[in-house]
Lab assay of single mutants.
Amino acid sequence: MFYPNSPQTSPQLTQIPYGQQYAMMQRQIQQPYHPFATTEPQARLYPYHYQGPIQQEQGGFITQQSTAASPQYVQMRVTPVDQSIMSGYPNQTANGSSSSSFNYNIHPQQQQQQQQQQQQLRHHAMPVGSVPLQDDRYRKQLIVNYLAPDVTSTDLHELFSRFGELDGARIIYDKQTNMSKGYGFVYFCHAEDAKEAVERMSGYEFHGKWLKVGYSTNPLNIVPSNSSPYVHAGSRGAAG
């Protein structure tokens, strides 16, 4: 039997160049792979992502010199942007860049009308829970959420009447099932009393439920100042 490094198959040491006398086997001759043993700084910083320098080929596509990437890492192929796409944008300079302001050559009167329309939209648009300043009635009506099913309009009136005089209180019921929808409205005579009720009743436990109280901004629920107070009856038909 002959071994790869046996004296019968191995040459004389004098015939082997210096430095390879003890590297006779194939696994010894093959050098191990060192990912950080390279002179390129990109490979030292990113050993798993770097795959060699990027070269520009004919046709405008950018390719990489090395083989496919590892399945664990996804390499994105980048193509140059066609400058003709950006030619339609206004205020574009000769080098292809555009300024931040756009001039669509709008007539001054049209621009003024658009600004007025935007101001009107901001004036009428009102986020949930906010209180408008032009109508004091919005500051007097509250919406009470997360009410228990057994709470009546009379219970709601008695709960909030300790903060001040009320114009009314009612629970909203479903017309088909005649069941409470879980929320109601309270109408105060003074805005200061309503503000105190919002601050003190939010998070209050009532009939096993934690109440959420806020201003009601729905104009359909506003009680006119010259109208008669609501009837605080315990029956659902009268309260709904």
Score class of each variant (00 low, 15 high):
Y3D: 06
P4G: 10
T9K: 15
T9S: 11
L13S: 12
T14G: 10
P17C: 06
Q21A: 06
A23V: 03
M24H: 12
M25V: 10
Q30R: 14
E40F: 05
P41W: 12
A43G: 12
R44E: 03
Y46T: 14
Y46W: 11
Y46S: 14
H49F: 03
H49L: 04
Y50D: 14
Y50V: 09
Q56Y: 04
G59I: 07
G60M: 05
G60C: 13
F61E: 11
Q65F: 06
S66C: 05
S66P: 08
T67S: 07
T67F: 05
A68M: 08
P71M: 05
P71W: 02
P71G: 05
V74G: 09
M76Y: 13
M76E: 12
M76Q: 14
V78E: 11
P80D: 08
P80V: 03
P80R: 12
V81T: 11
V81P: 12
D82M: 06
S84M: 08
M86L: 09
S87N: 13
G88N: 08
Y89T: 07
Y89K: 14
N91P: 08
N91Q: 05
N91F: 05
N95M: 03
G96A: 12
S97P: 12
S97L: 07
S97Y: 14
S99C: 07
S100V: 08
S100R: 11
S101V: 03
N103V: 08
N105P: 07
H107N: 13
P108I: 09
P108H: 07
Q110A: 07
Q112A: 10
Q114D: 06
Q117N: 09
Q119V: 11
L121N: 09
H123T: 05
M126Q: 11
P127Y: 13
V128K: 14
G129S: 08
S130Q: 06
S130L: 03
S130D: 08
V131D: 12
R137T: 03
Y138H: 11
Q141M: 00
Q141V: 00
I143C: 00
V144H: 00
N145A: 02
L147C: 15
L147Y: 01
L147V: 07
L147Q: 01
T152V: 09
S153R: 15
L156P: 01
E158R: 12
F160A: 02
S161P: 02
R162N: 12
R162L: 14
F163W: 03
G164M: 01
G164C: 01
L166G: 00
L166F: 01
D167Y: 10
D167N: 04
G168P: 00
R170A: 02
I171E: 00
D174L: 02
T177G: 02
K181R: 14
Y183K: 00
G184N: 01
F185Q: 00
V186K: 01
Y187F: 01
C189F: 03
H190P: 00
A191N: 03
D193M: 11
D193P: 14
A194K: 00
K195A: 14
K195D: 07
E199M: 15
M201W: 01
S202P: 07
Y204R: 14
E205M: 15
H207W: 15
G208H: 15
G208F: 08
G208V: 02
W210G: 02
L211H: 01
V213D: 02
G214F: 02
S216Q: 01
N218Y: 01
L220F: 02
N221P: 07
I222K: 03
I222N: 03
V223D: 02
P224K: 04
S227E: 05
S228G: 13
S228C: 12
S228N: 14
P229H: 10
P229R: 05
P229T: 08
H232D: 03
H232Y: 13
A233W: 15
G234H: 15
S235R: 07
G237I: 11
A238H: 10
A239N: 02
G240N: 06
